[in-house]
Design a protein around this nucleic acid. Structure first.
Length: 903
RNA sequence: GGAGCCUUAGCUCAGCUGGCUAGAGCGUUUCUUUGACGUAGAAAAGGUCAGAGGUUCAAAUCCUCUAGGCUCCACCA
């Protein structure tokens, strides 16, 4: 293949991806599913000795598009996958698609509303079918985008969160939990969105600080107090009252008590008395409860158990009735009284305040800032609502998880997230898993029909009324002559997602799975609680083992100014746009560059551009080497062993050493998930070492076998991070075969360490010469400049190379009398041969140089002057310092002499 | 109220268990149109490592406090 002068990713990427995919490179050699596909073949001898490496893709929404977070996730996961594949692991990167229950439902409901329909026109089952079609239409987009990002995942094993095996596993777990008594039906106060008409788990609620009002309302005592020394108020008319503070006057119709703190002296004598509930005929008691904070408001608080989480707890402690006054639609119920029923909470609040004002019961209001719960999707204020819901008792699940975490069975990157997770689990409350949306896995519970249509006295907590059955395709079933009706609710998506490592690896109770636990769970730090925590609890509950050995959490990707990306701000970066513009590799390298675990970090197109340039550099490296091969191959005797190489020069030993360093650096960094440093090391080696020094030095004398060998090594090591360009090159090179994706990770290269070190000295000689030359600027323009060297075998042996690299016109030994500018090199006598008048212009540069070396020398001397340093610091450091002082002294000495010569 | 994170060059960030002259990319300046690459090559400027204490022979790194910023959790009526 003829290589063009610059790399054009769009010409190659899709073909390369298709070739990988059809070659079967993405599939593990022996997953249970590949076994199945291959007709139940047993493990080959080779695969037995290989280590499994498994990683799952956090399933993107089946009907969505990928965003920048997915771009990062795939860059991270695919780099790991490809790296371990090259290392020889039996690697399985499992892709997925999420039905994303609520998320998708919101999108669908919006679409439905935009064509003038509402969910209420259809049955649950009809809606489920409709959303299924909706998702089916959209599917494929996401998968194409994952391919464009180069994910080497095993597509045959793609798991959709509504696949049969997923549902079956979820039902088995649910049944086990039901039998173990971990599932219960509870009438509890839940977070409820009146717009979407569904309940949420605590974690799905967004708390925002908002300005609000705290109103003081007079509740009149319905009987006279016995003593007059209380701090309760009394009006001129002689009536006695207590003042409660509330932010939600409209809920007063549901009040069941007024609570005061038992320690609060002001109200002690009122405990047990009753007050008349304003705007109603009811009387409610004054009770003592710790919940009332004497320092807040008036210290007296109204208790509305059906509409406030704290009050609900207070109500339970005091056996208060839960009276609902707000309905599922967010409007006031009949229980609020004829005048208020049907009003929205906002309207009702205003009306209540007006009435209280008229009756002289409203004593004032304070402006406050308080935290208000919102639906994380539509922003509607969450209405704590009394609902019958399915709950998971998380106590033992959380406790078990904490034990395994404290036992260090899962390693976290970043480390501190482990403790954060443990803290969360310690305070975890029971998990509401019912959702009142049609799009999701139906909860497999059926209720006795007579319990529903009977007396109206429903006993939801009575387990025998409910039975577990997996026939959720049916509305009702009959068992032993009794009819049961299915609960219409669906599971919280996290309930099924928490099974992800179990279902994707085909784990079974009988055989487990060689791929379970996963080697690593890579996902966003923002879903540590929602997902990671639940996978750990569920994994332990179902399998007895933690679901993954390591967790890598990536942070939020921010825009180039460090601001959160959002549609409203218009600063959203679409990863696929960048892929189209610069190529997949450039995007992946660009987003990995400088990124560390867990941190929210900025990202900009600049780093993608820089990465695109690196791809182009690598491309041209290959192009140069191929052109050398092409120009000599036909004359060369190619019967040598293809893989044998020798190092014939210092530069060759040096590059072997550097490539070997790169290999160990990548290995070390990948082990600890240091992607930023891996990318940095690659960039440095490819560009600053391989291209700038090694290839430059090879222009003089080419070692073709070594060039081939080192280029192969470099390409393989770069492949996990820049898969497309490395494969494209691999395919274009004349001597390589197969796919690079299937190659073996390089072994260490052999080299002579002393010779490699010598090349380093050559580099500093050349650099010094270049520096002085650049400093002389145009004074040397047009004149012939050369290098003269003293009795120096290193320079003598490599004279041509030094001449070439410094771009001087000649190089020769000195004739004994120093001439020109002596370079500031330790133990090396090299002169830049320029006319005397030009030497003079070097004076300033030289003076500055003497001063700077002097400063360095002083710093070293100061260190050695400290007797405690010599005494306590490691010997090799002291030795180094001594050597440094000697070298710098010698250097300064000859620079000073040089200065004298100039003057 | 609790917890976690961040503060290093103009910008975005590395700097792992404390130890050479604190690094990279982008940007800036100067030079180079030599046949791999101008998406390039060569060179340069630019940092009191937020501030103050402490531990240590030695601190960007460990500890304490202060200031500023970000995020998460939590029932503040």
């Amino acid at each position: 293949m003829k290589l063009t002068s610059s790399y054009e990713p769009d010409k190659f990427e899709s073909d390369i991806y298709a070739a990988w995919e059809s070659s079967g490179a993405f599939s593990p050699t022996d997953s249970s599913r590949t076994r199945e596909r291959a007709g139940g073949l047993s493990k080959s001898d080779e695969s037995v000795t290989r280590d499994e490496y498994s990683i799952v893709m956090p399933p993107p929404n089946a009907n969505g598009n990928l965003h920048i977070g997915h771009g990062l996730t795939i860059a991270l996961e695919d780099s790991l996958t490809r790296y371990y594949r090259l290392k020889g692991n039996n690697t399985w990167y499992i892709p997925g698609a999420d039905h994303a229950g609520f998320e998708t439902w919101v999108v669908y409901e919006r679409a439905l509303e935009s064509i003038g329909h509402t969910r209420f026109e259809y049955t649950r089952d009809e809606l489920y079918a409709k959303v299924w079609d909706f998702v089916e239409e959209q599917r494929g987009n996401m998968e194409l985008q994952v391919r464009a990002l180069g994910a080497s995942c095993s597509w045959d094993d793609l798991t959709f969160t509504l696949d049969e095996n997923v549902v079956a596993r979820v039902y088995q777990t649910f049944e086990k939990m039901w039998n173990d008594g971990l599932i219960y039906r509870g009438k509890k106060l839940v977070n409820y969105c009146p717009k979407h008409q569904t309940a949420f788990a605590d974690i799905e609620v967004e708390h925002l600080d908002e300005p609000g009002h705290l109103w003081d309302i007079k509740y009149l005592l319905s009987e006279p107090a016995e003593t007059g020394n209380g701090r309760e108020g009394s009006s001129s008319a002689g009536e006695r009252y207590i003042i409660v503070s509330t932010t939600r006057p409209e809920t007063l119709f549901g009040d069941q008590a007024v609570a005061v703190n038992p320690e609060d002296e002001r109200y002690k004598n009122l405990i047990g008395k009753h007050v008349k509930l304003p705007l109603t005929d009811r009387e409610i008691p004054i009770i003592a409860d710790e919940h009332a904070d004497p320092a807040y408001g008036t210290g007296a608080v109204k208790i509305t158990p059906a509409h406030d989480f704290d009050d609900f707890e207070v109500g339970k402690r005091h056996n208060l009735e839960n009276l609902r006054v707000i309905g599922d639609d967010g409007k006031m119920l009949e229980t609020a009284g004829k005048n208020y029923a049907g009003l929205t909470t906002e309207e009702c609040r205003q009306k209540v305040l007006n009435r209280l004002e008229e009756q002289g019961l409203l004593l004032g209001s304070h402006e406050i800032t308080h935290s208000v719960a919102h639906c994380y999707k539509c922003g509607t204020t969450i209405e704590p609502t009394l609902k019958d819901q399915w709950f998971v008792d998380v106590e033992t699940l959380a406790k078990t998880a904490i034990e395994h975490l404290e036992n260090d069975e899962i390693k976290f990157y970043p480390e501190n997230k482990k403790q954060v997770l443990i803290n969360y689990l310690k305070g975890l409350k029971d998990w509401n898993i019912s959702r009142q949306i049609p799009w999701g896995i139906p909860i497999p519970m059926f209720k006795k029909q007579e319990a529903i249509s009977g007396t109206g006295k429903e006993n939801y907590d009575d387990a025998p009324d409910w039975i577990f059955d997996t026939r959720t395709n049916l509305k009702g079933i009959e068992l032993g002559g009794i009819k049961y009706i299915r609960d219409e609710d669906t599971f919280d998506t996290w309930f099924s997602s928490s099974h992800w490592p179990i279902v994707t690896t085909d784990w079974t109770p009988e055989h487990g799975s060689p791929f379970y636990p996963l080697n690593v769970m890579e996902t966003g730090a923002d879903i540590l609680f929602a997902w990671v925590a639940r996978m750990i609890m569920m994994g332990l509950y179902v399998t007895g083992e933690v679901p993954f050995k390591e967790v890598y959490l990536h942070g939020l990707v921010l825009d180039s100014h460090g601001k959160k990306m959002s549609k409203s701000k218009g600063n959203v970066i679409n990863p696929l746009d960048l892929v189209a513009k610069y190529g997949s590799d450039a995007f992946r390298l660009g987003i990995l560059r400088g990124r560390s675990a867990g941190l929210a970090q900025a990202f900009s197109e600049d780093s993608v551009v820089a990465s695109r340039n690196l791809c182009n550099k690598l491309w041209n490296i290959a192009r140069l080497i191929q052109s050398w091969i092409d120009s000599t191959e036909d004359t060369a005797d190619d019967t040598d062993q293809p893989n044998s190489y020798d190092t014939d020069s210092m530069g060759e030993d040096w590059i072997c050493r550097e490539l070997d360093n790169l290999r160990t650096q990548i290995e070390r960094n990948m082990k600890s998930y240091r992607f930023a440093e891996t990318v940095e090391a690659l960039y440095d080696t490819i560009w600053n070492k391989y291209a700038d020094w090694f290839l430059e030095s090879q222009k003089l004398m080419r070692n073709l076998p070594l060039l081939k060998k080192t280029l192969e090594s470099l390409l393989i090591m770069a492949h996990p991070f820049m898969p497309f360009v490395t494969e494209t090159i691999w395919q274009a090179l004349s001597w390589t075969s197969g796919y690079i994706i299937n190659q073996k990770w390089p072994e260490s290269l052999k080299f002579d360490a002393i010779s490699a070190e010598q090349f380093e000295r050559l580099i500093s000689t050349v650099s010094e010469a270049r520096k002085v030359l650049a400093g002389l600027k145009d004074t040397v323009k047009g004149i012939s400049v050369g290098l003269l060297y003293g009795d120096d075998a290193l320079i003598a042996d490599n004279a041509e190379l030094v001449k070439q690299l410094t771009h001087v016109d000649y190089i020769e030994p000195t004739d004994g009398t120093p001439r020109g500018i002596r370079l500031a090199l330790v133990g090396r006598e090299v002169y830049l041969d320029v006319p005397k008048d030009i030497v003079k212009t070097y004076k300033d540069q030289l003076t500055e140089r003497i001063l700077s070396v002097g400063r360095e020398l002083n710093a070293l001397n100061a260190r050695m002057m400290n007797p405690r340093y010599v005494e306590k610091a490691p010997a090799h450091l002291v030795e180094e310092t001594k050597k440094g002082i000697e070298e710098k002294q010698a250097l300064i000495e000859h620079l000073k002499q040089e200065l004298k010569v100039i003057e």
